[in-house]
Write a protein that binds this DNA or RNA. Structure first.
Length: 332
DNA sequence: AACTTCATCAACCGCGGAGCT
DNA sequence: TAGCTCCGCGGTTGATGAAGT
């Protein structure tokens, strides 16, 4: 795709003095060295990289290029491997089921592409991000839905796909999800910035993100975004979702439980969704009213529930803290 | 046929988190 | 504790091919 000439045009930094990353004064030497190749990868480079990783394994990206005989920076090698060369990468069109799942996960997680990709086998964050930006945003907009918060678009004649960039849209910029997830392959951290009372009869206490909250940590063994979360929030997660069903609809929030994985898994199952929402509607009068699903597959059923977090009175959505219409919803 | 516009997606960039010293 | 380094993420760019005029 990208030619050498274009790369040099944009990538003048490659020939510039070592750049300083803003804010932290950090150097990024791997990307600033003169003489490193940029632009599209050749078959020879792909083979060198693949052979090396097959032999030595992933990681140590900084030193990998030199050891593999590549004139690339480690970042570039990692990206090429992760997005293209990995044997688990699935090529081809996004299936309707995958699209549906992307929509659901995006509504839940916002632009957490790596997390979304981690729930869709074989798909990379880059691929999903591209698909979202090129297909799904337009699709949602055509349906009158704001792709950033999955809510109905404001009636505005200037709303069109071209205007839906972060810089030009008339719709306020919304930073998605207060679920602050900092991830590395060594440690996965989830910060639930809220005192959450899920599914119970009492109202949850919502703190503004960054103000207070529980920090939970758990190390996982895998390197993907398919995280296990330790909800040891020191009482942050203070009760259980729904009734104590045995069909996994009622998920207890307990320490060491893979809560988010369960949520994500439940995204795959409409019946579970609906059962959970019905369950909660009976037990919790404060629940946010149902909204139509944005999914193409759910267009025929406007009573299709939202994601389980919303349906279970979990006070966050992709747009921010949402606990109803009492005016204290947090929209950054 | 030539030109313009649009759509796609691989690749790059900057930044922040986390580990190490 | 502070600074450095590495890694990974999300946002963005721009070359390329397709579609339209």
């Amino acid at each position: 795709m990208r030619t050498q000439s274009s790369s040099s045009a944009k990538g003048a930094a490659g020939a510039s003095p070592p750049s300083k990353a803003k804010g932290k004064g950090k150097t990024t030497p791997c990307c600033s060295k003169v003489g490193l190749k940029r632009g599209p990868w050749t078959a020879e480079e792909d083979k060198l990289l693949t052979d090396y990783i097959n032999k030595e394994g992933e990681g140590r990206w900084r030193t990998l290029p030199k050891l593999a005989g590549l004139l690339r920076c480690g970042k570039s090698c990692r990206l090429r491997w992760m997005n293209y060369l990995r044997p688990t990468v699935k090529r081809g069109h996004i299936t309707p089921d995958e699209e549906d799942l992307i929509l659901r996960l995006h509504r839940l997680l916002g632009n957490r592409w790596s997390l979304i990709a981690g729930r869709i086998p074989g798909r990379t964050d880059n691929e999903i991000k591209n698909y979202w930006n090129t297909h799904l945003t337009k699709k949602l907009i055509s349906q009158g839905i704001d792709p950033r918060n999955h809510k109905p678009l404001l009636v505005n004649p200037t709303n069109n796909p071209k205007n839906h960039t972060s810089s030009s849209s008339s719709v306020p910029i919304i930073k998605p999800t207060p679920i602050h997830v900092g991830l590395s392959n060594k440690d996965k951290t989830v910060k639930i910035n809220s005192s959450v009372n899920v599914g119970g009869t009492t109202n949850h206490q919502i703190d503004q993100p960054n103000s207070v909250g529980g920090t939970t940590n758990q190390t996982t063994g895998n390197g993907g975004a398919d995280e296990d979360f330790n909800m040891d929030g020191g009482g942050i997660i203070s009760c259980c979702i729904g009734e104590d069903n045995e069909d996994n609809v009622g998920m207890d929030f307990c320490p060491d439980e893979d809560v988010f994985s369960t949520f994500f898994d439940s995204l795959m199952n409409h019946d579970v969704f609906f059962a959970a929402s019905q369950n909660n509607q009976q037990s919790n009068h404060d629940i946010t009213p149902l909204q139509p699903s944005t999914s193409e597959h759910n267009n025929n059923n406007n009573n299709q529930p939202l994601n389980p977090l919303e349906q279970m009175n979990f006070p966050f959505s992709t747009a921010g803290w949402v606990d109803g219409d009492d005016g204290d919803d947090f929209l950054p």
